[in-house]
């Protein structure tokens, strides 16, 4: 599904080139659950962003479903975001102006799904995550764990093939974190490819494979 070949990511300052990623090679098959670990500044998030088309590599080749990513047009990237990729973040990033229901619904609006169908899909998602009672609340009225639930619901409502999670439990206490990890595992069992970035060894164990980044290099375990 994902092939990264000799991926570099660097920033040029006046006299010096700073590498964030260096020669990253990675193959990820459909249905895998990958955990990326590494100290702060090792390039985990950058790698995730490159995979999710939010950033571009400085050098190297990235194939997504066999297509070279550097040749993808903006439109195709938008298309992939709409149908293939879902994101969740450490800081949840729910839209504060929208309530739970509306937050979950948003990706469908951008995909142009009709109102009736949207209603059914959101209702199903609320039910599945057991947050029907919270549907009219706004993000600020929810606990961190609840917010992350909503964020996951929002990320997967479009049935993406790939879910990218950037420290999904980083802002949660352990109990909530465990709940979220179990949920991710369940989604993976249902066939969703998941790549998560995490600091926690425990959480990393949920994955099939752990990739460790250090100073931009991959050390696969």
């Amino acid at each position: 599904m994902i092939q990264l070949k000799k991926i570099d990511k660097y920033y040029d300052a006046k006299f010096q080139r700073t590498f964030v990623l260096k020669g990253v090679n990675l193959d990820i098959e459909q249905g895998e659950f990958i955990s990326i670990m590494g100290p702060s500044g090792s390039g985990k998030s950058t790698l995730l962003n490159i995979i999710g088309f939010l950033d571009e590599p400085s050098q190297g080749e990235y194939l997504f479903l066999g297509d070279p990513a550097n040749k993808l047009k903006e439109k195709q990237k938008v298309q992939y975001h709409r149908s293939h990729i879902g994101f969740i973040f450490q800081a949840f990033h729910l839209i504060e102006e929208l309530n739970v229901y509306e937050n979950i619904e948003t990706p469908l609006v951008y995909r142009g799904v009709k109102g009736k169908e949207r209603k059914a899909l959101v209702a199903d998602m609320l039910d599945r995550f057991n947050i029907v009672a919270k549907k009219d609340l706004f993000p600020s009225q929810l606990s961190g764990g609840q917010q992350q639930l909503v964020a996951i619901a929002r990320a997967i409502i479009g049935k993406p093939k790939l879910l990218l999670a950037d420290e999904p439990t980083g802002n949660l206490h352990s109990e909530q974190g465990e709940m979220i990890m179990k949920l991710l595992k369940k989604l993976n069992d249902e066939g969703m490819t998941i790549i998560q970035v995490t600091h926690s060894k425990e959480n990393a164990e949920y994955g099939d494979r752990i990739i460790t980044l250090k100073d931009g290099y991959v050390r696969e375990k």
């Binding site: 939010l54 990033h93 948003t106 990706p107 929002r154 479009g158």
Partner: peptide
């Protein structure tokens, strides 16, 4: 945040 998050879902 709104704009950037929205970008991630297309």
């Amino acid at each position: 945040t709104y704009f950037n998050v929205s970008k991630t879902f297309g």
